[in-house]
Amino acid sequence: MDIFRENLTAVIKSGKYFVGIKETLKAVSSGEAKLVIIAGDTSVGLKTAVEKKAKKAKVEALVFAGSMKELGHACGKSFKVSCMAITDQMAAGMICSMVDGF
């Protein structure tokens, strides 16, 4: 999990991401999102809606093992983050391959 957070921190430093449900869905709809990450304790209805929209747009959606508070902290935010979209293809690929390796 620490490697995941380190890579996520690198993405955050690049500035190629959006946080929050509205921004994430907007990034998915516009085609900017290359990967969606959803906090593990996000409500089932919200999680399903984001996953459905991502699937329709052919964007991979991963469920973060931690809470919204932990995802927010990993993003360098002082508030809870239910989901986020990564817009950099290389960073998204790196995170996906890392998750597939576990």
Rank of each mutant, 00 (worst) to 15 (best):
V11R: 08
V44L: 12
K55R: 14
T24K: 02
A65F: 01
I95C: 01
K26E: 15
E60K: 10
G40L: 11
S82R: 09
G40P: 10
A49M: 14
F4A: 07
E51Q: 13
G93P: 02
E23Q: 13
E60H: 03
A61W: 02
K16Q: 14
G93Y: 00
E6R: 14
M1E: 10
L8P: 10
K16H: 15
A54T: 04
L35V: 06
S29Q: 15
K56P: 00
G31P: 08
C75E: 02
I37D: 00
T48H: 06
A10N: 14
M90L: 10
A57T: 01
I37C: 02
I37A: 01
Q89T: 05
F18D: 13
G31T: 12
L46D: 09
A57M: 04
I3V: 15
D2Y: 05
A27Y: 03
M1P: 11
G20A: 08
Q89G: 01
M84L: 14
A85S: 06
V99M: 06
K26I: 13
G76L: 09
A10C: 05
M1L: 04
S29R: 14
D41T: 09
K69G: 05
M90D: 12
L8R: 07
V59W: 00
K22T: 11
D41H: 10
Y17Q: 10
Q89N: 03
L71H: 02
V19S: 13
S82N: 06
V36K: 01
T42A: 13
V19Y: 07
K13Q: 13
I12E: 03
K47A: 07
E70L: 09
